[in-house]
Structures are given as structure tokens and as C-alpha cells.
Simulated scan of single mutants.
Amino acid sequence: MKYLNALRNQWIAARGWMFCTLLLAGLLIYVMQSYVQLSANMPTRLVPYDLHLMEGPVEVGASAGYTDEDYLTEIAVADTQLHSTWTPNNVESQYARFQNRMTPALYAKVGNDLQGRLPDLENSERSQALFVEHTEALEDTVRVTGRLRAWIGSEQVEDRPIAYRVRYAFSDGVPYVAGFSVEEE
């Protein structure tokens, strides 16, 4: 009988540890879910590198008193690179990222054309790169000039000057591509 009481006591002690383990696991899951939800809903603030020189907050957007030209220029260079620099392996992701930067109106106008070009570009051996030489910002429009070079395999087949004009529209302070045109130089 002594042996059975010892087994019974061990069983009760083990159930206690199992209960505590399950309770702590449930608490851990709840805390992790709370952190994930909190991080998804937390606003992101862009802090400029020269914040210590400013005398207050700076608005960027359509409702702002002014839009930093350097800010728009950097975004325009990145957007033109998404459109113009690709290989057959990454052209789909580059164009998808470019389309995500468009306003709904521009996407409705040119989105299907870009999607229609993808099969031909993916099956070709053409790669191209844009080398930016100069940028010029005028209010909500940025002009990006440079050289567009293209290769088929390892042979360079194109090297020409090109200029892009990128116009932005702001939504909740975020600039989206509202107009995109190519100007041959």
C-alpha cells in the first residue's frame, strides 16, 4: 500500500507541474499575440538626420507648406530604378514594387500594360540598368536624367541618354507616383 500512495503522490505532483506549464504557455502565447498586434498598429515616425537643427516639426505632404526637394528626389530615383533596372530573374518583382508605388488612377491606366510586358521580358535574355546622372525637383514633380544601358547576355546592345518625369500625389503624407513619363534625350 505504501508503494501505491507514493505513486499517487507523484501523479498529483506531476499534474501540478503540467498545470503550471500549460498556464505559463498560455500566458506566453497571449503576450506574444499582444506584442505582434501592438507592433502592427504602432505608427512609424521618420526622423531626419538634422533634427537638432530644426525648431519644430516639419510637415511633408500635399497639405504641408513645403515639401523637401531632397526627400522627393531620393524617392523619385528609387522609383525610376524600380522601372528601369532589372534582369529576367527579378523583372516581375521590380515591376510589382513599382506598381505598388502608383496611385490607383495611374495603376488603372498603365498597370495592365506593365503586367502584359512581363512574359516577354522574363523569357528574354535582356537586362538593363539606369545610371542616374542628374535630378531636378519642381514642387511635386522630379526629373531624373541618366544613361540607360541594356545587355543581351553579356553583350551591351544599348547605351542612350534618357530622362524620366515623375509626378507625385500625397496620401496621408506618403508620396505615390501619380504620373510617370519617359523623355528621350
Score class of each variant (00 low, 15 high):
50 D>I: 05
35 Y>Q: 12
21 T>Q: 04
17 W>I: 07
156 Q>F: 04
115 Q>K: 05
16 G>V: 00
40 A>W: 09
66 Y>E: 04
119 P>C: 08
25 A>N: 04
22 L>V: 13
129 A>D: 02
64 A>G: 05
99 Q>N: 01
80 T>A: 09
87 T>I: 04
61 G>K: 01
154 S>N: 11
137 A>I: 07
114 L>K: 00
60 V>H: 08
62 A>S: 14
88 P>Q: 08
27 L>A: 09
82 L>M: 12
153 G>E: 08
124 S>Y: 05
28 L>C: 13
89 N>F: 02
54 M>H: 12
132 V>K: 03
129 A>N: 04
131 F>P: 06
74 E>T: 12
101 R>K: 12
113 D>T: 08
16 G>C: 02
68 D>G: 02
101 R>H: 12
120 D>E: 01
57 P>H: 02
111 G>E: 05
124 S>V: 03
155 E>F: 10
32 M>K: 13
91 V>T: 07
147 R>H: 13
32 M>A: 13
124 S>H: 01
81 Q>R: 10
91 V>Y: 00
154 S>I: 03
47 V>G: 01
114 L>D: 02
96 A>M: 08
135 T>D: 02
119 P>N: 13
84 S>H: 01
104 P>N: 11
15 R>W: 12
128 Q>N: 10
15 R>T: 00
131 F>M: 13
48 P>G: 10
16 G>P: 07
135 T>V: 15
67 T>I: 10
26 G>P: 00
113 D>C: 04
106 L>Y: 04
117 R>H: 06
149 R>K: 13
